[in-house]
Computed example of a mutant assay.
Amino acid sequence: MHYRSIAYTERLAAAGAAPSGGSVGHAYDNALAESTIGLFKTELIKLRGPWRTVEQVEIATLEHVDWFNHRRLHSAAADLPPAELETAH
């Protein structure tokens, strides 16, 4: 397993929670995050750059997250935006 601090592990145990972690060589825990980061880089950062200020990236990121969650259609979610699918669920 990946390194975890003793205090963190003890706190999880006290709360009755199990840590999330795959075995060495298996990145299943990170697959969704990596896929989302890749889309973010492709659809926003690379497409709309070059960026001149951090503030430009921050505003564009907020706009992108709003679009991604409320207007972007996802084929794996019955062609609904995530917010609509969550509301329907």
Rank of each mutant, 00 (worst) to 15 (best):
40 F>P: 00
55 E>Q: 05
45 I>W: 02
31 A>L: 08
53 T>Y: 02
39 L>T: 12
51 W>L: 08
37 I>N: 12
37 I>P: 00
29 D>A: 11
32 L>M: 13
47 L>Q: 15
39 L>F: 14
62 L>T: 04
35 S>H: 10
56 Q>P: 05
45 I>V: 15
38 G>D: 09
57 V>T: 10
57 V>G: 04
48 R>P: 07
38 G>F: 05
29 D>E: 14
44 L>Q: 10
32 L>R: 15
55 E>F: 03
30 N>C: 09
61 T>N: 01
63 E>Y: 04
59 I>T: 08
41 K>F: 12
31 A>G: 13
47 L>W: 07
36 T>R: 08
60 A>F: 04
63 E>K: 03
42 T>C: 05
62 L>V: 07
48 R>C: 12
57 V>Q: 02
34 E>I: 10
44 L>K: 08
55 E>L: 04
60 A>N: 06
36 T>S: 12
47 L>I: 10
35 S>C: 14
42 T>L: 05
52 R>P: 07
59 I>W: 01
59 I>S: 00
46 K>C: 13
37 I>G: 05
47 L>K: 15
34 E>T: 14
47 L>S: 12
31 A>S: 13
48 R>D: 15
37 I>C: 11
30 N>V: 11
49 G>S: 12
34 E>D: 09
34 E>G: 09
39 L>K: 08
29 D>N: 15
33 A>C: 06
29 D>R: 09
40 F>I: 13
62 L>S: 03
41 K>M: 14
31 A>P: 00
60 A>R: 04
28 Y>V: 09
64 H>R: 03
53 T>I: 05
60 A>W: 03
61 T>A: 05
51 W>N: 10
53 T>W: 01
50 P>K: 08
38 G>V: 12
63 E>R: 03
30 N>R: 09
62 L>K: 03
60 A>M: 06
63 E>N: 05
62 L>W: 01
30 N>E: 15
37 I>V: 13
40 F>A: 12
49 G>P: 08
38 G>R: 07
30 N>G: 09
47 L>V: 12
61 T>D: 01
51 W>H: 08
40 F>T: 10
47 L>R: 15
28 Y>A: 14
64 H>E: 04
35 S>I: 11
49 G>E: 13
50 P>R: 10
54 V>C: 02
52 R>C: 07
38 G>L: 07
29 D>H: 11
59 I>N: 00
61 T>C: 03
57 V>A: 05
28 Y>L: 08
47 L>P: 11
47 L>N: 14
55 E>C: 02
59 I>F: 02
49 G>W: 04
30 N>W: 05
52 R>D: 10
36 T>H: 07
28 Y>K: 07
41 K>C: 14
35 S>R: 15
38 G>T: 14
53 T>L: 01
46 K>Q: 11
55 E>R: 00
42 T>Q: 07
